[in-house]
């Protein structure tokens, strides 16, 4: 009799049932399910942004390198402008095209407006830089938000899951570990998903915001240099 009872207890103590990820998800409370789905969606979106940014930044860097090599190759700025103006330009090329356009417009017509041309060119280039930066930094804030909020969302799912799990324990009037464990495992799964979404987001946000700052300073450096070149040209023309 005693040994029978004991055998039953040992059987109960063995882990029971399917506890795969999928089963954990299906067994969870509806709120926890929504949290999990939201976190998975956030993770998908984050990774989409990460991939997108990686491609964009790589492309931008490559374009800048190519443009700089072409620009400093001694080629005529007029020729360069003619080849570039028909394209949809980005980053440095866009800067160059914007400045050149302003330059050309100022020299068009009977009366060249050279007096404040330098200021106009600077302003145009500033505007272009800020537009380019906006393009580069677009959606990086999503990464930041997911990175900071996803753990809390996951924690909310966990707290909710543990809460319902304790309610279930209270209802079943049984504190056996097999009753307690699945609910808590389910609940913790939500935190795991939150961290899975948040960690890459935080890393990517730091990486790409730093990279955007670097690209921005590079563009500003080019803008200053180009502005100096144009300024020299303007001075030469006004004196001559």
């Amino acid at each position: 009799m005693i040994s029978e009872a004991f055998a039953q207890t040992t059987e109960l103590a063995a882990p029971a049932g399917d506890i795969s990820f999928f089963a954990l998800f299906l067994g969870a409370h509806i709120v926890v399910k929504i949290v999990m789905l939201g976190l998975i969606a956030a993770s998908v979106w984050c990774w989409a942004i990460i991939v997108d940014k990686q491609l964009l930044f790589t492309r931008t860097r490559r374009q800048m390198n190519r443009f700089e090599s072409v620009f400093w190759s001694g080629q005529s700025l007029e020729d360069l402008y003619q080849t570039l103006v028909s394209r949809a330009n980005t980053s440095m090329a866009a800067l160059f095209v914007a400045a050149m356009r302003e330059w050309k417009r100022s020299h068009e017509g009977k009366k060249p407006a050279i007096a404040s041309l330098q200021q106009r060119i600077d302003r145009v280039m500033d505007v272009t830089i800020s537009r380019e930066m906006e393009r580069l930094e677009n959606r990086l804030l999503v990464l930041a938000t997911v990175g900071s909020a996803a753990p809390f969302v996951g924690l909310f799912g966990t707290v909710w899951g543990i809460m319902t799990s304790f309610q279930a324990i209270a209802a079943s009037k049984n504190t056996n570990l097999t009753v307690v464990a699945p609910g808590i495992a389910e609940a913790l799964f939500a935190t795991a998903l939150g961290l899975v979404a948040a960690i890459p987001a935080v890393i990517a946000y730091n990486k790409y915001s730093a990279e955007a700052t670097r690209l921005s300073s590079r563009m500003e450096g080019f803008a200053d240099e180009f502005s100096a070149i144009l300024s020299r040209q303007i001075d030469e023309r006004t004196q001559g």
Partner: peptide, 23 residues
């Protein structure tokens, strides 16, 4: 591109998770 790559990546990871950690 990013969205497609991300979706495919997540699907792969989930599928791998189902195989690698069936229970």
């Amino acid at each position: 591109t990013g969205l497609v790559v991300s979706l495919i990546g997540h699907a792969v990871v989930l599928f791998w998770g189902l195989i690698a950690f069936p229970s």
